[in-house]
Design a binder for these strands. Structure first.
Lengths: 218, 218
DNA sequence: AGTCAACTGTCAGTGGCTGACACTAGTCTC
DNA sequence: GAGACTAGTGTCAGCCACTGACAGTTGACT
């Protein structure tokens, strides 16, 4: 069920350890090949060959080619969610979301590094943004996440998201802005985590003022 | 180039007319089959058979199975864009977008009906929202549209979207909220265009107040 | 009427993905 | 420690979306 995290708990037996190794190997090989030659250009056979397993085995670890790309993303997201759950109840919803992302980024580093180099993950993220089919999948995953956030926020505030549009609307706006920042970061080839963080803060800050007023003569 | 609109101008020769007929036939057959048996469950062969052409021909009219689903969406979007371009320059950006959607919906009806029954189009929209792979494609298309809107809005206001985050942010928020409304409309099985319209207005109105303030005791 | 070009069908092939079945290798029991 | 059990794997066969190449047909234009 918790298939998102590729190797969270310690392995018990030899069998488990072997499984974890193959999975991690497949994951790294896939990302390496994807980022080197392109996602569409890389075949599942090539990934399987690189790890010396059969193609069928790849599909036993990952439901599809796509899933390998988003395995790490899964970890980051669940990190964000738990961070959001821990936010003090008296914070305004938008502020809570804003702080949760930033805190999540502060604390995720090592966990990711245990499985793949962070630098590879960042290359992977840029690939997602620039590969149409992956971008599509990324966005759909975003929606699923949005829905979970909406539930969370509505719960915090004691509202029914089916009746009151505000949780949904706030989350949608938040996610939209986050995505815009991510896109921009991906387009500018430069920059590491710090620049992404700065960009995110700028964008989130710009939202409220941008909505109601006219912008002429900034 | 303007391949989005399936039969905009009048057909000149017999050849043109024939082409248009096959294309429209493929489009209707595809949507009919998709909405009846499900998108994933319908094969391209079945669509081609229904129109009595070869599978290869289908792929000559549509770059992929997906494209058939979004052919009508393409029309609606370009309608929205031209509506937005016509908005008076003194309207605030967010307001201009809001009015452009509503005006576009007022005037699109007949154009769509010329090709497929509106009712079929609405079934198709619900299918998109409830079919993961289509939702993904839908969202990616949304991004492309967002980028074009951003250009437009930035142009209106005489800003460079690469320097000033406000156009991007406002459009992202707008699109996010629009999508949330669409999703909700799709989930509630009921309702036609009017209920979608009402839902959209409610959601857009809720945005600005939802951001900065606390919501307890509404 | 005849040439040209557009449109279409057929065929063969690739790549993602799945079910079925047999085989190998940890694991657990006695 | 040997044998039974079963999770994990490889192999094979097949479906479906999609593509390139080639040949046949049918509007269009002189």
């Amino acid at each position: 069920m918790t298939e998102g995290q590729p190797s969270a708990a310690l392995p018990t037996g030899l069998r488990e350890r072997k499984k974890r190794r193959t999975r991690d190997a497949l994951l790294v090989a896939a990302l390496e090949l994807f980022t080197a030659h392109g996602y569409e250009e890389t075949t599942v056979d090539e990934i399987a060959d690189a790890v010396e397993v059969s193609q069928r085995t790849f599909f036993r670890y990952f439901p599809g080619k796509e899933a390998a790309v988003f395995a790490v993303q899964d970890m980051v997201e669940s990190h964000f969610l738990s961070e959001l759950r821990q936010r003090p109840a008296d914070e305004a919803p938008f502020e809570a979301m804003r702080r949760a992302v930033l805190c999540a980024w502060d604390s995720i580093g090592q966990t990711v590094e245990a499985i793949i180099p962070v630098e590879l993950h960042m290359r992977a993220y840029r690939m997602i943004e620039s590969t149409p089919s992956l971008l599509a999948a990324h966005l759909r995953r975003g929606i699923v996440l949005e829905n979970r956030i909406t539930e969370l926020i509505a719960g915090r505030e004691g509202l029914d998201p089916a009746r009151d549009p505000r949780p949904r609307v706030a989350v949608a706006a938040f996610s939209g802005v986050m995505r815009a920042a991510g896109q921009l970061w991906g387009q500018r080839g430069d920059g590491g985590m710090e620049s992404l963080r700065a960009l995110t803060e700028t964008h989130l800050d710009a939202l409220a003022p941008a909505l109601s007023e006219r912008w002429r003569t900034p």
